[in-house]
Amino acid sequence: MKHRILALVLAGMLTAAATACGSTNSKTSKNADAKPTVAYKDMQVGETATDLKADLKILTNRTDLVDSDFQDYISEFNAMYPNITITYEGITDYDTDATTRLSSGDWGDICCIPTTVDKSELSNYFEKIGDYGDFKDTYEFADKQMFNNEVYGIPTMGNVSGVVYNKAVFEKAGITELPTDPETFLADLKLIQEKTDAIPLYTNYA
C-alpha cells in the first residue's frame, strides 16, 4: 500500500511542480509544463483523496528551495491530499550523503537519484514510475534514469550543449558548410582567425 501511495504522491508532486529528479541545471519547458496523466490514469488508491494518510520525507540537493518553492509545492499537493504530510530535507554534498543513506536504507521515501547508482541497480532502491512509452512524448530526458524500458525518475532540469555561430563571419572566412566533427571545427576556427578580424571562439568553460 505504501508503495502505491508513494507513486501517487510522486505523480501529484510532478503535477504540482515536476519534482522527480535525475539531472540538474538549465530548465526545460517541456518538463515544466508536463502532466503525468498517462502513467497514472488507471491508478486507484483509496476511496477519496482525504482518506490517504502518510508521513513522507523527500531528500533534495536544492537546499535553497526547501523553505521557499518546495513549501508552495507541498501546499498545492495538500490541497488535494490534506492528510499526507510531506517534509523536505536539503543535503549539500548530495551524491555522497544520499549514496550512503541508500546503502543503509535510512534515507526517507522519495529522493533525487544519485549519479552513483548504476542504472542496472535502480530497481534495488526505487519503484518504477512507469514505462518509457508513457513519458517519452511528454518529458525531455525521460530515458536518463531508465533500465529495461522502465523509468525510475524524471529530470526536472537538463543541460543541452551547442555552439552559436555568426553566419556573416563564416561567409567572410569562406566556410560554406557547417563542421560536423572536431577536426573540421578546429580547421574552420583557423580560417576565421586567418581571414577575418573576428575572435574565432569564445567560451566561458575552462
Rank of each mutant, 00 (worst) to 15 (best):
E76V: 15
F70Q: 04
T63P: 03
S68H: 09
A142E: 04
N78P: 00
Q71S: 04
T92S: 07
D131R: 08
V151K: 03
F126Y: 13
Y94W: 03
V66G: 02
I74C: 00
D109H: 11
L59P: 03
D64G: 04
G130N: 06
C112D: 10
L59G: 02
G108F: 00
G153T: 09
F77L: 00
N148F: 10
G108Y: 05
L122Q: 03
E89C: 05
V160P: 00
A54D: 13
M157L: 08
A98G: 11
W107E: 01
T100E: 14
D72I: 12
S68I: 11
N83S: 12
M157E: 14
D137Y: 01
Q71D: 03
N166R: 05
V117P: 00
I74T: 10
Y139V: 01
N149H: 09
K53E: 14
I110L: 14
N148W: 10
K167V: 14
N148P: 07
V169C: 04
F126D: 01
G105E: 12
D67T: 14
D118K: 15
Y132A: 14
N78S: 12
E121N: 14
D134E: 07
R62Y: 15
N124T: 14
K144M: 05
S123K: 15
G105H: 13
S68R: 10
I86S: 10
K167Q: 13
I113K: 02
K128C: 06
T60C: 10
F141N: 08
G158T: 06
A98C: 14
I129V: 14
Y165S: 08
D95P: 07
L102G: 00
D109F: 03
A168W: 06
G133R: 07
I86P: 02
S104F: 08
A168H: 08
E89A: 09
K136E: 06
F141A: 10
N61Y: 12
F135E: 03
L102E: 00
N83H: 15
G133Y: 04
V163Q: 04
K57F: 01
E127K: 07
T96A: 09
Y94G: 00
G105T: 10
R101K: 15
L102W: 02
D97I: 15
G130R: 09
L65Y: 11
F141I: 11
T138E: 07
T87E: 06
V163P: 01
D95H: 09
Y88D: 02
D134I: 03
V117Y: 04
Y81D: 02
I86M: 12
Y94I: 01
D55I: 04
M146L: 08
S161Q: 09
L122R: 00
A79C: 01
T99P: 07
D131L: 13
R62M: 13
W107I: 02
S75Y: 06
D64S: 11
N78C: 08
E150F: 00
Y165T: 09
N166K: 08
G158Y: 01
P114Y: 05
S103V: 12
V160D: 06
L56A: 05
N148L: 09
